[in-house]
Amino acid sequence: MNSGAVMKAVVVHGPGDYRLEEAPIPAVGTGELLIRVEACGICASDIKTYHGAPKIWGGDGNPPYIQTPVVAGHEFIGEVVELGPDYSGEFRVGDRVISEQIVPCWNCRYCNTGKYWMCQKHDIYGFRPNVNGAMAQYMKFSKDALVYRVPRELSLEQAVLIEPYACSKHAVDRGSIGPDDTVVVAGAGTLGLGMVGAIHMLKPKTLVVLDLKEDRLELAKRFGADVAINPGTADPVQAVLDLTDGYGCDVYIEATGHPASVKQGLEMIRKLGRFVEFSVFKDPVTVDWSIIGDSKELDIYGAHLGPYCYTPVIDAIANGSMPTDGVVTHRFPLEQWKEAFEVMERGDGSIKVILIP
């Protein structure tokens, strides 16, 4: 790439201060890859970051996670256009690729024991300047990045869902779902719909999906949900109790990002059940912890990122086991990033909104 060449990029300067700018095309160093971005999805966490979520920007005594200025975006698909000096990996110019959203340090106690997704340094694309994100025409993959080849046969709408669906699969794996289980997924956005596909492959006794939007519930049923409930028109707790002889669900996966969903899950899950918390919340959530311990003795699992899930998800999308049709609802050019964020935030008739550089 010519020295001094520039590109368009959405650069984060602060809460509510995102700017479409001209930025230098990244220079690739030893062992690195330069990627031409095909598309970048907008994640719910991008919206929360834009609005100044304390978890990202710091608060309650916690330091900020994000470092600015930084190019936003961690849901992407792209093509290799340049190899860095002394590159010795398997990829070549022209390959279609994706990188896991975290770039591990490979030197902390987590990386050294195979738990790289909990890396202590924790560099995630779009949040740190040394791993600038994909809301740009080009991005760089570090020599430490986890990179996978993506089949050309996958449509753009399928390929851009690999990252969120990897997160979905990891959350489902945390629930240890078996054939006798009644499973509830709260939230049928992109992540929830990915969970529906991953759970459907496990063939549980009953899969229940909750969402306030009827179009998303219809899609969930097409993807494999047995029961779809709108909490705005029915009591989901009573409905799940009725389905389970009054016991409650075996597994509850929280994927709405709304505090009320946590309380709802604690009410509808059975004693000795498994609660999987996936969402990133805008603010801290308070619940009655005595339910977790004294009342129900629950197993509580967190779920973060998509470790060891990219290869099986790419295969599952390719063979149709994890359905994708209808999830990407809107495409915008990079120049219309603000309108795209607004459409994503409103969620009216939209699920996954993507930017095309």
Rank of each mutant, 00 (worst) to 15 (best):
E75M: 08
P164L: 04
M1V: 04
L207F: 03
V70Q: 11
K205I: 06
R149M: 06
T113N: 12
D283N: 14
S295C: 08
I77M: 05
K48I: 07
Q101D: 02
G273A: 11
V196I: 08
K8D: 15
E345Q: 12
L212H: 10
R270E: 15
R346D: 10
I162V: 07
I269R: 04
S142E: 05
I356T: 15
E297R: 07
R149I: 03
F278V: 10
R96Y: 02
W117M: 09
S142V: 00
G29Y: 02
T30F: 06
K296W: 01
M1C: 06
L266N: 09
V185A: 01
E345N: 09
E254F: 05
I291L: 13
K338R: 04
T311L: 11
L20V: 08
V227R: 03
N2D: 03
T206W: 07
A186Q: 12
W106D: 12
H200T: 14
K271Y: 13
P15K: 11
I42K: 09
L202Q: 09
G320C: 00
S3R: 00
G326Q: 08
D315T: 08
T68C: 14
L154Y: 00
R222T: 06
P54W: 10
G133L: 01
R92Y: 04
G232E: 09
H122A: 02
C167H: 05
A72M: 14
R346Q: 11
W117F: 07
W289T: 12
N2I: 00
D215T: 10
I47Q: 05
G73D: 09
F275L: 07
T182H: 05
M1L: 03
K55Y: 14
A136L: 05
I292H: 05
Y165H: 15
E345C: 03
G257A: 06
T49M: 14
D95H: 08
D95F: 06
L266R: 09
A27E: 15
S279M: 07
H13V: 11
P151W: 01
Q120G: 00
S99M: 02
A171R: 04
I77L: 04
G293V: 08
F275V: 07
G246V: 02
L298Q: 07
P64I: 03
V131Q: 10
G59C: 05
T182Q: 11
R36D: 07
N2W: 00
H200A: 15
Y18G: 01
I77K: 03
K352A: 12
A188C: 13
Y87Q: 14
H304V: 09
E157I: 08
V70D: 13
V160P: 10
E339D: 11
Y252A: 14
K121N: 00
I56H: 13
D17L: 12
L193W: 05
M344L: 09
Q158F: 06
K48M: 12
P54K: 05
N319D: 14
